[in-house]
Design a protein around this nucleic acid. Structure first.
Lengths: 377, 377
DNA sequence: GCTCAATAATTTCCTTCGTCAAGTATTGAT
DNA sequence: ATCAATACTTGACGAAGGAAATTATTGAGC
């Protein structure tokens, strides 16, 4: 962690993380929040301020009775350090530079003509150079790169065990990418990266448990329980797309029938509508009832899958997003209906945010993972 | 914790818990397991031995190369302290006395003529007295009572928020039961209690993540993720019974259709077989194909529900149990088939233990919760 | 303006916990 | 016997937080 890999006290990590995700926040508030003495917070904050990661904000408006010394809230110095995040897909690299507050400062992408490792690494190196040496002069203050890859990824070793889209097996991606870029690299599964981003910097802030559902070609889910990301012991977790919806439904590529993904994945919609995805969206928007019903059923299936998550782990809040939600307007009410139908008891009260995914969000997730690595988590 | 509520060092708790669940185990092995120095283990073990909770076993067979001082494994002194566990149902109290190793030493039960709190507490007091003052002389070495109740229970305050079967709402059960019995009381949801029992003393030992599925009138599920029990922020978690199975299936009491419970709960089987549950079991065993198909479909639905858990959280292992599994032979193959069908990728490799639930197991779960409370968790 | 109560932050001192490194204990092999 | 190997114990030390006193900064009341 931090400039030269020194280990730091737990309280320092805790304070940094809390300011990062919940700042600006005063020392007393931190002490309450983290169950520490205010003395401990003062001590933990000092080195962070000295290293330039935090700064004190001028006291602003008061909250309490009105008497007493006003708090001096701590905030991140967002431009203290920058982070590169790159999402690697089968045919494209999407890269961003984020500041410490996970705000996107620059972005770039490259089409990939192939998926073989050496070629991808060359392209990655060039993409990172483009980002860091372009306008903004980020190079000097950037040490870390986060990579987001779909599939089975061992975050702790940086090994890509298996990525179907890239057709990679047991690729030591961290090691190779560090050589190719000269940066300290962190590798994570793409959905988990996005989940972390949303948990630390998005709508999941402060949640003890949280779920992020991505809707697209596949339907996935990242899970935070008891404040920690769920990994799944066999490398499988969050496969909401293969929760059952209709035993008698259409065959799924997984071998079963009627999985959520077999009803609501992009391919399923193309199949049921008999149109390309964009055309189906257009038709439904134009009022085609038959195609509209396809989206309705798909949305309902997604909602039922989400309800399964709510029923099983009971998260504080759920965010639904993904490139499939470019057709947000067609899905949204049906996702909610499916969720309400299937959520049991108080699970139905779980707040559900449904919204399309901004471009670059996946790459921002990758950058977030490298911020998390800086903090040492 | 411990004789007089003193707080103890984290390492002491860790060592005690590890010996409890994984003993006999030597100090070096504990040090490796808990990522502590062997010196720390020595220091943590000492007070536990002095208080009589642990003892040293004579060194037995050797494992390594053969040279070197043999290890002296630490074990629990199971009879150091006893724990009462009582499962409270709408019409019965089932109580056990367990030793520190969660072995049942005595058991008793009482039918309940009503479910009103004062009456139940009176009966509870008498049941506890029967257990402690009967043969075995447990009274002197028993300080704790664990209570398992179905429904929404706040474990930390001992408040029963809502229990449908008992028709209790916001009952301060811990407080009242402590007055009625003179013991230190811990209250927990019944499925969570059973899950803890299995995680600490049963087939879940050593698992970082673990699921226990109970099959009966309702179908429930307890979940351990990252070593911690999952609570669910709205008091809902583990509602595997209301995972979707068949959109077009029979109406469920929850308002949806085709939930696992609506197909595989005891009531559903009675409905579909047109017979009382026991008669249906007999008919299926006698080869009645129509009734056999009812069990087959029910088992498959349960298997799909379990697969949803495996797909979403990827536990190290899953145990399926419950009073419904008195018809174990009829369910088992179909549960496995449904699971295999719906489990995605590596999730299908998750070990599945399916077995009927011994009588008293629920009460043993309640006792386990009080053991956990002793250890301070 | 001065004093006081209220709240925030800091300082100083101290306890606690766990590590390190050195030592003791107990074995099998030569 | 001696030695290597492994298990455990001891005592000195250091890092991390807590408690309580102290300083800082405000508004309210006079």
């Amino acid at each position: 962690m931090f400039p030269d890999g020194e280990t730091v006290a737990p309280a320092v990590t805790a304070v940094f993380t809390a300011v990062l995700t919940e700042g600006p926040i005063s020392r007393v508030a931190l002490a309450r929040r983290l169950d520490l003495s205010s003395a401990a917070v003062t001590k933990a904050a000092r080195p962070l301020i000295e290293m330039g990661y935090l700064e004190e904000l001028a006291a602003t408006e008061r909250t309490g009775p009105g008497a007493g010394r006003p708090a001096s809230p701590l905030v991140i110095r967002a431009d203290r350090e920058f982070f590169v995040g790159v999402k690697i897909t089968g045919d494209e690299l999407i890269g961003v530079v984020c500041d410490l507050g996970a705000q996107v400062r620059a972005s770039a992408h490259r089409r990939l003509a192939a998926a073989d490792l050496d070629y991808v690494l060359t392209q990655l190196g060039e993409l990172v150079d483009d980002l860091l040496d372009g306008p903004g002069d980020y190079r000097a203050r950037t040490r870390r790169l986060g990579l987001a890859v779909s599939g089975d990824v061992d975050h702790s070793t940086g090994l890509v065990r298996y990525s179907p889209f890239l057709r990679w097996r047991d690729v030591p991606l961290r090691e190779r990418a560090e050589k190719a870029t000269g940066l300290t690299v962190t590798v994570e599964n793409d959905v988990k990266a996005l989940t972390t981003a949303e948990h630390w910097f998005g709508e999941g802030v402060g949640a003890e448990s949280f779920a992020l559902v991505t809707v697209g070609a596949g339907i996935g889910c990242g899970l935070v329980v008891n404040g920690r990301l769920v990994s799944g012991s066999h490398g499988v977790a969050g496969e909401i797309g293969h929760v059952g919806f209709d035993v008698n439904g259409p065959a799924c590529h997984c071998g079963s029938r009627g999985c959520v993904e077999a009803v609501a994945g992009t391919d399923a919609i193309i199949r049921d509508a008999g149109l390309r995805f964009d055309d189906a969206v257009a038709a439904a928007r134009a009022g085609d009832e038959r195609v509209g019903a396809v989206f309705a059923r798909a949305g309902e299936a997604i909602g039922c899958g989400i309800a399964a998550v709510a029923n099983l782990v009971g998260p504080d809040r759920i965010v639904v997003s993904g490139e499939g939600l470019s057709a947000y307007d067609l899905f949204e009410p049906h996702i909610r209906a499916g969720f309400q139908r299937q959520a049991f008891g108080a699970a139905a009260d779980c707040p559900l945010s449904i919204r399309p995914l901004p471009f670059e969000e996946w790459a921002r997730g990758a950058a977030t993972v490298s911020i998390k690595a800086l903090v040492g988590q």
